[in-house]
C-alpha cells in the first residue's frame, strides 16, 4: 500500500517535472494575435497536456520573470520571430508569418545561432493547394494571372493539368495599372499574392474595380479580400494556425522534438456569392470545393 502510494507520488512528481514551460510571444496585441493565443490555449486545454504558457508581447522590456527557463518559445508574427530566433538558445516555433519571411530571417541569423532547434507554421498556403483550390472552385478558368513586384520571388509549382500561369512583373508604381490591364486581358483569374508593393489597401481598390470591369475575378489571400470584392480565397485563420500550433506543442511535450517547418494544416474557403452572380460565375459550395480538392490530393 505504501509502495503503491509512493509510486503514485513519484509519477506525480515526474509529471510535474515534465510540465512544459512555453513562452508565447506575440508581435502585437491586436485581435488576430489574440485569436491565435486563445485557439492555442483551447487546443491545449482539450488535450489535457501539461503545458504552462506565459504570454508576452515582443519588444516588451518587462518580460515575465517566473524564475523558470522556458522550454520552448512560440513566436507569433515577424517581430516576435526576429527576436526569438536570434536572442536565445531556446527552441522556437515561429508562426503566422509567410514562408519567405521565415526563410529570409533564418538566413540573416548570426552563424552562432544556427544550431538550435527551430520550426515554423507558415501563414501562406502551399502552391499546390492554392492551384487545386482554383481548379476546384473555377474549373473553367485555367489561365491564372499573377502580378509581382521585383521584391517578390515566386517559385512556381508543378501546375495541375490544364492550368497555366501568366505572371508579369510590375517594375514601378506608374506601370502597375497598365501591367494589370495587360495581365487581365490574357488571364481567366487574377491571383493575389502577399506583395504589399502591389496589394496595398489603396491599390486593392483599383485592382478590384479594374478586374471587375474586365470581368476577370480576383482570387484573394484572406477573408478581408473576399469581403472587399474578391471572388474567393483559400486561407488559414489565426485560430486554425493556433490549433495546429497546439497540436505541435502536445507532441513536443511528449518527445521534445520540433517537426519540420510546415504549411497550415487547416484552411478556410471564402466565397463572395454576389460577385459571382454579377460576373455570371456559378461557384460550387465550399463543401464541394473541399471535396474536389481532397480528390486532387489536398485538404484536411
Amino acid at each position: 500500500m505504501l509502495l503503491l502510494s509512493g509510486a503514485i507520488a513519484l509519477l506525480a512528481t515526474a509529471a510535474h517535472a515534465n510540465t512544459l514551460n512555453v513562452r508565447l510571444v506575440l508581435s502585437n496585441s491586436t485581435s488576430a494575435y489574440q485569436q491565435f493565443s486563445v485557439a492555442l490555449k483551447n487546443t491545449l486545454a482539450a488535450s489535457k497536456a501539461a503545458v504552462n504558457i506565459i504570454e508576452s508581447k515582443a519588444g516588451d522590456p518587462h518580460q515575465p520573470e517566473d524564475g523558470k527557463q522556458a522550454d520552448l518559445i512560440i513566436a507569433v508574427g515577424i517581430k516576435a520571430v526576429e527576436d526569438a530566433i536570434t536572442n536565445t538558445e531556446i527552441p522556437v516555433l515561429s508562426v503566422m508569418l509567410p514562408k519567405m519571411a521565415y526563410e529570409t530571417l533564418l538566413e540573416r541569423r548570426p552563424p552562432a545561432q544556427r544550431t538550435k532547434s527551430l520550426s515554423a507554421i507558415y501563414l501562406d498556403q502551399p502552391w499546390n493547394r492554392q492551384m487545386n483550390f482554383i481548379q476546384a472552385a473555377l474549373p473553367k478558368h485555367s489561365i491564372v494571372g499573377l502580378l509581382y513586384s521585383p521584391r517578390s520571388s515566386i517559385i512556381l509549382p508543378r501546375l495541375p493539368r490544364g492550368m497555366s500561369i501568366n505572371a508579369q512583373s510590375v517594375r514601378s508604381a506608374e506601370t502597375l495599372f497598365a501591367t494589370l490591364e495587360n495581365v487581365l486581358n490574357n488571364s481567366d483569374v487574377l491571383l493575389a499574392i502577399p506583395d504589399s508593393e502591389i496589394y496595398s489597401s489603396s491599390n486593392v481598390r483599383n485592382i478590384l474595380l479594374t478586374s471587375y470591369r474586365m470581368k476577370v475575378p480576383l482570387i484573394g489571400i484572406s477573408q478581408a479580400y473576399v469581403n472587399a470584392g474578391a471572388l474567393c480565397a483559400v486561407f488559414s485563420t489565426p485560430e486554425q494556425i493556433g490549433e495546429q500550433a497546439g497540436e505541435i506543442l502536445v507532441s513536443f511535450a511528449r518527445d521534445r522534438r520540433l517537426p519540420e517547418p510546415q504549411y497550415p494544416a487547416f484552411f478556410s474557403i471564402g466565397l463572395n456569392e454576389p460577385v459571382a452572380h454579377s460576373l455570371g460565375i456559378e461557384l460550387p459550395s465550399p463543401e464541394a470545393i473541399r471535396e474536389r480538392m481532397n480528390k486532387a490530393g489536398e485538404g484536411r
Binding site: G77, I78, M100, R151, S196, S201, V204, N227, A228, H277
Partner: peptide
C-alpha cells in the same frame, strides 16, 4: 521589407465591390 509579412494576410481592406457596384449579369 523585401519579404512579405503577416500584415499582407491580416490587413483590413475597404469594401470595394459593395452591393450597389455590382451589376446584374446581362
Amino acid at each position: 521589407d523585401d519579404y512579405p509579412t503577416e500584415q499582407d494576410y491580416l490587413q483590413e481592406l475597404p469594401i470595394v465591390l459593395s452591393a450597389s457596384r455590382l451589376a446584374q449579369p446581362i
